[in-house]
Write a protein that binds this DNA or RNA. Sequence first.
DNA 1: ATTAACTGTGTCTGCCGGACACAGTAAAGT
DNA 2: ACTTTACTGTGTCCGGCAGACACAGTTAAT
Lengths: 229, 229
Amino acid sequence: MTELLWSNQPAPSRGPKPAITLAAIAEAAIRIADAEGLDAVSMQRVAGELPVTKMALYRYVPGKTELVAVMSDLAMGAPPDRPESPWRDALYTWSMDLYDGFLRHPWLVQSTIGRRLLGPNELAWIERGVGALAGTGLSGGEQLDSILVITSHIRNIVQQSTTFPGLTTGLTEEDMQQSLAGILATEAARFPHLVAAMSTTAGSENQGLEFGLQRILDGLELLVNDRKA
Amino acid sequence: MTELLWSNQPAPSRGPKPAITLAAIAEAAIRIADAEGLDAVSMQRVAGELPVTKMALYRYVPGKTELVAVMSDLAMGAPPDRPESPWRDALYTWSMDLYDGFLRHPWLVQSTIGRRLLGPNELAWIERGVGALAGTGLSGGEQLDSILVITSHIRNIVQQSTTFPGLTTGLTEEDMQQSLAGILATEAARFPHLVAAMSTTAGSENQGLEFGLQRILDGLELLVNDRKA
DNA sequence: ATTAACTGTGTCTGCCGGACACAGTAAAGT
DNA sequence: ACTTTACTGTGTCCGGCAGACACAGTTAAT
C-alpha cells in the first residue's frame, strides 16, 4: 500500500507487458468521480473506461480502498509554489490553495477522511503548511494542530458549499432552506435564538470560509505574539 | 421525510396493528452502528434484530437514507441543560458536550454530513450554540458561522481520535505512525519542516481538541471585544 | 525447448437497496 | 352481519457491488 502510493513497485521482468498503468486507472477513476461523484466509482465502471475487464484492475491494485487512496493523492496534486511571506499571509494563501484544490475535486473531502496512509502529495501539503509556521516559536505539535484546525474548516466549507452527488442526499440548498423555514415557522417558540439569527442573515451567505479562517488566524496570532513575549 | 424526523405521522386508523415502531427500528440500528459501525447497518441486519423481515421496514421508512437520518437525530439526543454563563464559558461547555455526544456514537460524524434535512435534536444543538452567542453583538450570520467552525473542529477531532469500523481503513494509529516514520526516514529531505515538527511532538498527543478550540475561542473573543468598542 | 513469472478473463459467491405482487387483518360503512 | 377499504408483513426478483479463484495466453530467463 505504502509502495503503491509512493510508486515503489519492484517492476517485474518476465511475463506479458501490462496493457494499462496504475496512473491510467487512477485517472479514469478521477474522471468518473469528477463527473458523477465518488459513489459512481466502481471497479466495473473504471474498467469500462479502459481496454480491460474489471478483474484485470486487481493486478494493479489490491482493492478498491487502495484505488481510492491512489486516485485521491493524485487528484490532490502538489501544492502550488508561493513566494515566501510572513507566516499569516503564507498560511492564508496556503488555505486558499487548499480550498481551490478541494473545489476542483469535491469528492476529495469524502475520500481523504479518517485514519489512512498518506501519499506524497498529501504529505507535501502538510509540509507546506507546517513550513509556514516554522519560524513562529510554536512547538511541532502546535504547528500540526494548527494546520489540522484550518484543514478541517476548509473541508467543512467545501462540503457545505458544493452541490455534489454522494455528498448531498439529493436535495438542493432550496430544499433545505424551505424545510428549515417551515419548521422554524411552526416551532419558532422552541428555537428563539436560531430564528433571530436566521432573520438577520438573509443575503450574507457564503462568508463562512473567510469568517472562520480569519478567526482561527486571529487566535493563532494571539498565541504567536504571546510566545514571542 | 420532514414528517418522519419531526414525528408528524398521520396515525392510521384501519388495518392491523403495526408489529414494531419507528423508534424501535432506529434503536436497533443505533445498537448495530454502536457495535459495528455505520457500514454494518443494512436493512437486513436491522430487520434481524426485530421480529420482522427486511421488507417490513419499508412500511415505516421510505429508504435507508431516511433511516439513517432518523437514527442520527435520535442518537444525537438533546443538548444537556447547563446553567447560564458568559458566552465563552457557555460555548466551551457546549463544545465539550458536543464532543461527548459524538464520542458516544462516533458514526454520527459519518452520518451527519453534507446537505441534509435537520431533525429536532440537531436543531436544538444549533439553537443552544447560537444562544451562547446571542448577547455578543455578533450578527446572526456570524453567530451561525462561529458554531459552524467549532462544530467542524470537533467533528474532525472525533474522526481522528476514534478507532472505529468504517471511519478507518482498518489500520491502527500504530500502523499510521509506522508508515509515516518509514517514509519520513527515507524521504526526510523532501519534508524538512514536517520532520522537525514531528521530532518535537513525541508524547504531546491528543492536545488537538483543546488547542484548536482555544484558538477559535480566542479569535472570537477578539471579534466580540472589537464589536463592543 | 522448457520453465517460471506474469497478465487478462469468465465464472461464482454473498452481500446490498429496493420494486412489486400478494395474502392476511382490522376497522368503518352499510 | 357483511362488505369495503386501508393497512400490514412476506417472498420473490432485479441490478449492482467487491472480490475469490481457476484458467489460458504471453514473455523472459534458463
